[in-house]
């Protein structure tokens, strides 16, 4: 039984660390703000959640101490990280950062032009 618990904890922490690493690689490799935002918002969220869950299970199952703050941190991460990704990319879009040239379609372009016109 302890082997299973150890394996579970190791699996969670390793998966979390790997996902965080992959999102860091994604930030280096992907071409523009928006595609980077994909890598950041998804992989780091899940990576951090996995690491926190590993920590939760470690203290819960090995030391018999249930830390509810970790659970709360998971919920907060879940709620806040998509919103921050949205706000950063929205701010980037309206301050004139162009999407990568491979971008196929851009329904927002018209809207941005209207906004800049009304600002002038």
């Amino acid at each position: 039984m302890t082997e299973i618990i150890d394996g579970l904890i190791v699996l969670f922490v390793m998966a979390g660390a790997l996902l965080t690493l992959i999102s860091a690689i994604g930030v280096l490799r992907l071409p523009d703000v928006y595609t980077r935002s994909h890598a950041i918002s998804k992989s780091t969220t899940l990576g951090m959640i996995f690491i926190l869950m590993g920590t939760l299970f470690y203290f819960w199952l090995k030391h018999d101490h249930f830390n509810s703050r970790l659970l709360l941190a998971i919920v907060f991460l879940f709620l806040t990280s998509p919103v921050s990704a949205h706000l950063i990319s929205r701010a980037a879009y309206y301050s004139g950062v162009r999407p990568w040239e491979g971008t196929v379609r851009d329904d927002l372009a018209e809207r941005r032009e209207n906004r800049t016109k009304s600002a002038e």
Binding site: S23, G26, T35, A39, S43, G102, T103, V104, D106, L108
Partner: peptide, 19 residues
């Protein structure tokens, strides 16, 4: 996360972003 992982780790970046 699986989808992002596949895109990030694929050798050529041949995705087509769109809005």
């Amino acid at each position: 996360n699986w989808a992002v992982l596949k895109i990030v780790l694929s050798p050529s970046l041949n995705m087509k972003p769109c809005i």
